[in-house]
Nucleic acid binder design. Sequence first.
DNA 1: ATGTGC
Length: 485
Amino acid sequence: MPPPKELKRIDEATWELPTSFRAGMLVPVRVFATDVLVRHMDDAVFRQAANVATLRGIVDASMVMPDAHLGYGFPIGGVAPIDPRTGVISPGGIGFDINCGMRLVRTNLTLPEVQPVLERLVDELYRRVPAGVGGQGFLKLSDDEFDAVLREGARWCVAHGYGTVDDLDYTEEGGCFAGADPEAVSARAIERGQNQIGTLGSGNHYLEIQVARPEHIVDVEVARQLGITRPNQITVMFHCGSRGFGHQVASDYLQEFLRVMKPKYDLAIVDRELACAPFRSPEGQRYFAAMQCAANMSFANRQVILHRIREVFSDVFDRSAEDLDLRTVYDVAHNTAKLETHLVEGERRELLVHRKGATRAFGPGMAGVPAAYQKTGQPVIIGGSMETGSYLLVGTESAKRSFYSSAHGSGRTMSRTKAKKQFHGRELQRAMRARGIYVRAASYGGLAEEAGSAYKDIDAVAEATELAGLSRRVVRLTPIGNIKG
DNA sequence: ATGTGC
């Protein structure tokens, strides 16, 4: 389906849908994408983004990132800044997988050192990082310990031997959202999440061994400052979130919001998937506190996964993790809502920025960017499909136009069902091995769903992200080993 | 995304 005829081009990679597009729109829809990406965007994305534009308290625009696709209520790749004094908080604008995010880890190893042991490395990682639906971790936490994880996130992990202070310095918010309150979390969510720390999950969650080929370095100087210094340097990237825990938190509050929305707050919504509550209401505040628990659970999850990665590399290379210089380049969330101060029409305003399938992308010099990256800007990670590669980028000053938000991945072009029919897991695994990518998967059906051709062209997404001014490319990372959830 | 849907 072609994009709606009301969509007007503003510049090379920016488009707008005016408020006349549908009844009730308070602000326009702003789409950041190239001509090709806009033409291939599911038309449901425009409809959903227009629905988001009707939410109480939305400021400036309902925004769409270059990799956007259909989501629950909001598009995946959607950004909505909402006034916290007058507006709402909506779980559909954050996603079921709260603080789903990416972590990039660098090593001082290069391809010739890793190639001979690649299969053993991937097999060991597959053994030590549980993947798949319902996967349970090695960490058995007491009720009190899990409570502390929800309050402290990755900080708890580092305090208990799973990582270094350095990891926290290179994690968004230091790996801990400050307002987390476990009192706001249901017993059922805790039951589901308690044994899931250190697990990858399923769907498009993965753990990947990558190589930074010299010809794929876009900005040598920035790459150097981010620790990518050697030709064919090996990196490890993984993508996962808050597992059943975040899913339960989202489900609990969606139900509650649907009950109270109309009778208690006279909130009318155009799609029930946009269920929301006033941010300042008791229900809104409790969801915000529970959502931050899930964000912290997710930071802890990625921190423990890194600990396992260090153990595996250390075993396989018979060298310490310090000696292998296994360091976090950055850990960044792409499913959150955060209170941030932004400049709107010359006025500084505190806004609740919903980012769903959208990466925070702070520019150089901004508070919240690690000291070592103050000059480069915050690292932004765009995860591609397991066959094609991923990008490391950095935030820019010009990203103020998206409230400092960027793309987060490739975005699907083919439904999971269609991909499963078209591809076969086992064959795909064989074909990938022949092309130099060794992949282990929790399920062959799940592997088929993640075939590279079921996704948008990652190069096109990264290029559009840069053209729209949302961030700047640093290096493209190519997979050589992959663990699929 | 998810002990995968009403």
